[in-house]
Write a protein that binds this DNA or RNA. Structure first.
Length: 271
DNA sequence: AGTGCGGCCTGTCCGC
DNA sequence: TGCGGACAGGCCGCAC
């Protein structure tokens, strides 16, 4: 899916078009996403005003005068602004028609995404309540990572992809950050020195910031609010580069599966 | 409590 | 050219 840089790129791209807008109509063509789209969503949202668009982890929070619309893009979801009346394409599941002549449209071929609704504080929603710190905030650093890694036997890649430990890091950026930090993705989290965990926290921040600057990574589905791809794919150092030379030492990049996810690393640079 | 796995979906690509 | 199977950016819920 979109990982944090892609979700944040989406948020930045559509924020100005949705903030302050009244929702004129909601159309749900396919309610069967990861969870069923709430049946009365249209009634709940109609005539509500979108006050702001925030992000927590990979969840987008449309805060309105009557509650919060929570959107998750899953593996293949994208949100974009289209002009009212633009004919929906395949997998365009949900539309929010706004007062400014634009429609916010959710496309999600694999339907692993979600559209949810809550009247209370969205940060207390069951799906969001236990989330770890934002990786680009001061709440995420080497000390935090060290505390969470203590005693863990599982692979460090699994640890940093755990949203209770830190949000926003998916399969691509986990491999990339571990490469920058020089840590083998399969290494047990609890057996990494404090110094290297500090380096890993810094590497996570670095790779996410770089990806944000490039508008995210587009492998296949991701487009920003204007329908454009991100450009970080060309900057990936190890992800998807099995057999190609390590950008650091030239050794062939290796791939192996960890927790059922493809992982890429340099066997010489990452220990 | 931590860990590993199945499952949710469709599209694409690869080998036969 | 067609077909089966593996795989793809996430992550919940369950069994152990």
């Amino acid at each position: 899916m979109p990982e944090l840089p892609e979700v944040e790129t989406t948020r930045r791209g559509i924020e100005a078009h949705v903030s302050g807008q009244i929702i004129a109509a909601v159309e749900v063509r396919q309610p069967k996403l990861r969870w069923r789209v709430p049946p009365g969503l249209s009634r709940k949202l109609k005539d509500a005003r979108i006050d702001c668009l925030e992000r927590r982890g990979k969840y987008l929070l449309f805060k309105t005068s009557s509650g919060t619309l929570i959107v998750h893009l899953g593996m293949s979801g994208s949100l974009r602004m289209v002009v009212d009346g633009a004919p929906p394409q395949a997998h365009d599941h949900v539309d929010l028609r706004l007062g400014n002549g634009l429609t916010l449209r959710l496309r999600d071929p694999r339907r692993f995404g979600a559209v949810l609704w809550t009247r209370s504080d969205p940060l207390r929603h069951p799906l969001l309540a236990a989330l770890g710190p934002e990786p680009l905030s001061d709440g995420f650093d080497g000390a935090w990572l060290r505390q969470r890694a203590h005693g863990r036997k599982a692979a460090v890649k699994t640890l940093i992809m755990n949203s209770r430990v830190v949000v926003g890091i998916g399969n691509i950026y986990a491999s990339e950050a571990l490469f920058l930090a020089g840590i083998n993705p399969a290494r047990s989290a609890g057996r990494i020195s404090a110094r290297r965990l500090h380096g890993l926290a810094a590497a996570v921040k670095q790779v996410l910031e770089e990806a944000l600057e490039q508008g995210g990574t587009t492998l296949r589905d991701f487009v920003n609010g204007a329908g454009e791809p991100g450009y970080f794919a060309q900057s990936l150092r190890v992800y998807g580069r099995e057999g190609e030379p390590c950008v650091n030492c030239g050794a062939p990049v290796r791939a192996r599966v960890l927790a059922q996810r493809a992982s890429y690393y340099c066997p010489r640079c990452q220990r």
